[in-house]
Simulated assay, not measured.
Amino acid sequence: MAQDNRNVSRIETLSRRQFVRAVGGAAAIGGLAPFVGLGTGAARAAVLGEGPSPKSAAETAAGRLFESLKPEQREVLCFSYDDPLRKKINANWAITEPTIGELSTEQQMLVEDVVRGVTSPEGYERFRIQMDQDSGGFEEYHIALFGEPGTDAFEFELTGRHLTLRADGNSNPGAAFGGPIVYGHGQGDSTKGLPGNVFYYQTVKANQVFGALDGTQRDLALVDNAPRETAVEIQGEGGMLPGICLSELASDQKELVASVIRVVLDPYRAEDVEEAMAVIEAGGGMDALHMAFYKEGDLGDDGEWDNWRIEGPTFVWHFRGAPHVHAYVNIGKRA
């Protein structure tokens, strides 16, 4: 019980820190809010960055992990880069049978280095709490490696209950995070406010946008039924996007949506965040995004919309907050 209380205290501290950072205005969300004034070509790349590389911390650790594997381990954990397993996503699955806990101590430390490398310090702490509470710890998760380090086709992937993380060194150009990812947390299941859930603060932040909408805007933004949570295929230009188009919003309302995007991206490393922002900008920026809130799954029937979605031609962030959090993310160019 004492450990649970410490976890809740850490979660609350992180949430306050996230909130203060997010509501600090356009300057605090580092270029994401306006999506203007970034220029084009080299100027924009200098501001936004081009994502991770094979020399990034996570990819370097993944390469060392690959080299440490014994032949019998490679037979189980390693696949060709084109293996369809790499593209599968699910909120609760084992990409390979062995758990991280079955690796050697050195290999477990290398996996942890990869996880630290693809997350921000606060994100790492959130994910470790989530893994402890959902599955009994980091050691109960699973990994796979695709391709070979040192080439332009290599990816590390971690999966398990409520979590998929990737490190690809930009082997998949134009796809943030190396491809679709998943996160979630089972705490507070079916209970209003999801007590103890490390991602509930994202629901609170998203609902600030709904609170800032006028009546006509709310009619456009509020949708009866949500799509399947796994329905995060990139639609590209001309796609059927749910909710209100952000071009219909005033500048201060757009800044609120931008702050939501910054908050949900914040658990991840800066290189992936920068690439995600560049991909959104390449897809038309803020004015090409839509935001939808779903009546379905309103815990407590309180009008705090637990299920919501932000989507554009190159961006899908589907947040299902009821009965507990499952979030599916896909940011990239249409294949």
Rank of each mutant, 00 (worst) to 15 (best):
M1K: 12
A2E: 05
F19V: 13
A27E: 14
G31A: 14
A33E: 07
F35L: 12
G37R: 15
G37I: 15
L38M: 12
T40A: 11
R44Q: 04
P54Q: 02
S56V: 03
A57E: 09
A58I: 06
E59Q: 07
L65A: 06
E67W: 02
L69K: 10
K70E: 14
E72N: 13
V76R: 12
V76C: 01
C78Q: 09
C78V: 14
C78H: 05
S80W: 04
D83K: 07
R86E: 10
K88D: 05
N90T: 08
N90Y: 10
A91D: 14
W93H: 14
A94G: 08
A94W: 00
P98Y: 01
T99W: 05
A144G: 12
A144E: 03
F146K: 01
T151M: 11
F154C: 06
L163G: 05
T164W: 03
T164M: 06
A167G: 14
S171K: 05
S171N: 11
A175P: 00
A175V: 13
G186C: 07
G196N: 01
G196V: 08
N197V: 04
Y201C: 03
Y201L: 13
V204F: 09
K205Q: 09
V209S: 05
D214S: 07
G215P: 07
G215T: 11
T216K: 11
Q217I: 04
D219N: 05
V223Y: 00
V223S: 02
D224M: 13
N225L: 15
G236M: 01
P242K: 11
P242H: 02
E248M: 10
L249Q: 02
A250N: 09
V257G: 10
V260I: 10
V264A: 07
P267I: 02
D272C: 05
D272V: 10
E274M: 05
A276T: 08
V279Y: 06
I280E: 06
L289I: 09
F293W: 02
D298M: 03
D302I: 03
E304S: 11
T314P: 01
A322S: 15
A322T: 05
Y328W: 15
Y328H: 13
V329E: 02
I331R: 00
I331Y: 00
K333A: 09
K333V: 09
